[in-house]
Design a protein around this nucleic acid. Structure first.
Length: 524
RNA sequence: CCCCUUGUAGUUCAAUGGAAAGAACAUCCCCGUCCUAAGGGGGUGAUGAGGGUUCGAUUCCUUCCAAGGGGACCA
């Protein structure tokens, strides 16, 4: 990574230990890369930042590195770097050499991260809300794998308990019914059973297999593990976990129920594990599940939760600590709820009332790529508004096409050159990367070289949105290049080197689209 | 009442405490396609309000206002 190479140079001349931040300034006149190290240092040393910047810069220059073409100091104390063409050309060669491995990092050191997402109850179809969390979780898993972690994608199936019973009642259509919708009606036809729990379990299995799993497939998501809650009861894991807490004296009885002292670990209030009627709460099996995941050698657990489940975090972290796990290794990512609008008015989305938009519906309407891009563009914190009619109407304007079109333009050139005589001779001759010396050549190369840096940022901050932004930046840079610099029709030597440049661009686009789970069309 | 999240252009979204707050869509002007114009160039336009910390704040602290979500022996 160019960024770390610059940081390494700086570390040689800065003795104080401080994290060196290298970033790409927004304005071109501030260089290819820039650092605020002198400003940071000024605080520690209580000296004038400009002086420190000047000193550092002259020390760097004194080393006479072939790395920098120019180093400048700018008020109030930034040090700005321009890289030599050679450095950029080498990075280009690196892309061409590494191909699909370009951007892969060793950040994760093969540590195992378990990522649980969607995990919607098998009581109905997946909604656009599940879609949002699903795409986000999927791409995060991709990014973490690219960064060198071993990622396990997991779906937890709540296939037992209160919700299943309610589902059974709903299908039976008795007074305790809560779920409504066509799918309930359809299921009713095939059920002869009368016991609500049995009906619920049977129907949950049908919904899981015939509705949820196909929807997940349609979303372009593959889970490594579909984990059944019921299995935790079958193998006594829930019992064992409660016993373990009991041994640690973290359990007490009150008003007929069994409580876990989660307040000892920072939770707001203690939580019930076994209700007075003898039924275990979902929380009880959730703890057992937590333990199970850690016991499968996961170094870290990431759990995606809808904002309506926010209250779970405190008790789950408390449980993790109580069981002897570090709470830093339990990460929750909260996805804000998607607000459904119809004709500009808010519709309360609920499986219980049957008012929702399914993810299948959305994908059918706008296509998978546009759907993925749409949700991946905004951060999980954003309270999104979603209007299906508007989404349909605007789907053709989805920025995903802007990015895909850039990649398609590359394919177009490559296809055309394949048949031309020029490329043949170019293949034989040596490639002179020095010919790539226009502003557009250099800017495109710089942008391509940022790909590993973006992977790093996205992986470190669990922030897949960074990839989407990069996709748009890269596309803009490419369109810009395409507009200004011709390839076909130039001198042979230049055609040859430009060809290498766009091949490198194609590699980065491919790797990037793979991470995002969007397709790279041949034509548009 | 308490807790969490959010408030940025007309709209949908960006911005590890950094330099002149970025895109896209909409809108206005230009490029008429010679590697597919699903493109390029340019204009208009925004940090909810007030304090504070900092060389520097959309970002951190604080008060207020607004929206959403929690606060069950529901999930």
């Amino acid at each position: 990574m160019l960024k770390t190479k610059i940081a390494d140079c700086l570390k040689k001349v800065i003795k104080e230990s401080l994290p060196i931040e290298i970033f790409v300034p927004e304005n071109e006149k501030f260089g290819h890369y820039s650092t605020n190290a002198a400003l940071r240092l000024a605080k520690i040393l209580k000296r004038n930042p400009m002086e420190i910047a000047e000193e550092t810069s002259s020390k760097l220059k004194a080393q006479n590195l072939k790395f920098f073409e120019k180093i400048e100091v700018a008020a109030p104390g930034f040090i700005n770097f321009w890289l030599t063409p050679k450095v950029l050309q080498n990075e280009l060669k690196e892309i061409l050499k590494q191909k699909e491995k370009y951007g892969s990092l060793k950040l994760g050191k093969n540590k195992k991260i378990n990522i649980e997402f969607i995990s919607a109850n098998p009581t109905g179809p997946l909604t656009i809300g599940n879609g949002r969390g699903g795409f986000c979780g999927d791409v995060l898993a991709n990014v973490l794998e690219k960064a060198g972690y071993e990622a396990v994608r997991e779906y937890y199936i709540n296939d037992t308990g209160e919700q299943i019973k309610k589902l059974g009642h709903s299908v039976l259509g008795d007074e305790q019914a809560v779920y409504e919708g066509d799918y309930i009606e359809n299921l009713r036809k095939n059920i002869a059973e009368k016991n609500p729990v049995k009906v619920g379990e049977k129907v949950a299995k049908i919904i899981l297999e015939e509705t949820i799993k196909p929807a997940v497939k349609k979303m372009g998501i593959r889970f490594d593990e579909w984990f059944s809650e019921k299995s935790l009861y079958k193998n006594q894991a829930v019992e064992k976990t409660i016993n373990e807490l009991e041994k640690k004296n973290l359990i007490y009885k009150k008003e007929g129920a069994i409580w876990f002292q989660s307040t000892k670990f920072g939770d707001d209030k203690d939580r019930v594990l076994i209700k007075a009627d003898g039924e275990k709460t979902y929380f009880a099996s959730d703890i057992a599940y937590l333990k199970n995941k850690f016991e499968r050698n996961s170094d870290k657990l990431i759990i995606f939760l809808g904002a309506d489940h926010f209250g779970y975090i405190g008790r789950m972290k408390a449980a993790a600590e109580a069981l002897g796990y570090k709470k830093e290794n339990l990460v929750f990512i909260i996805i804000q709820l998607v607000r459904l609008l119809k004709e500009g008015k808010e519709v309360r989305m609920s499986k219980r009332t049957g008012s929702y938009v399914t993810i299948d519906e959305l994908i059918d309407e706008v296509g998978l790529d546009a759907a993925r891009f749409f949700f991946l563009m905004s951060s999980p914190d954003t309270h999104m508004n979603f209007d299906l009619d508007l989404a349909k109407e605007q789907s053709l304007k989805n920025p995903v096409y802007y990015a895909q079109y850039a990649a398609v333009r590359i394919q177009g050139i490559l296809a055309k050159l394949k048949n031309s005589a020029k490329s043949k001779s170019a293949k034989d001759g040596k490639i002179d990367f020095n010919l790539l010396n226009t502003v557009e050549d250099i800017n495109l190369t710089r942008m391509l070289a940022r790909f590993p840096e973006i992977v790093e940022t996205a992986a470190e901050n669990y922030n897949p949105q960074a990839l989407v932004r990069f996709a748009l930046d890269l596309s803009r840079e490419f369109h810009n290049f395409y507009e200004k610099e011709k390839i076909i029709g130039e001198k042979q030597e230049l055609v040859a080197s430009r060809l290498e440049l766009i091949k490198a661009a194609q590699i980065v686009f491919k790797n990037l689209f793979n991470l995002l789970g969007i397709s790279l069309p041949q034509k548009m």
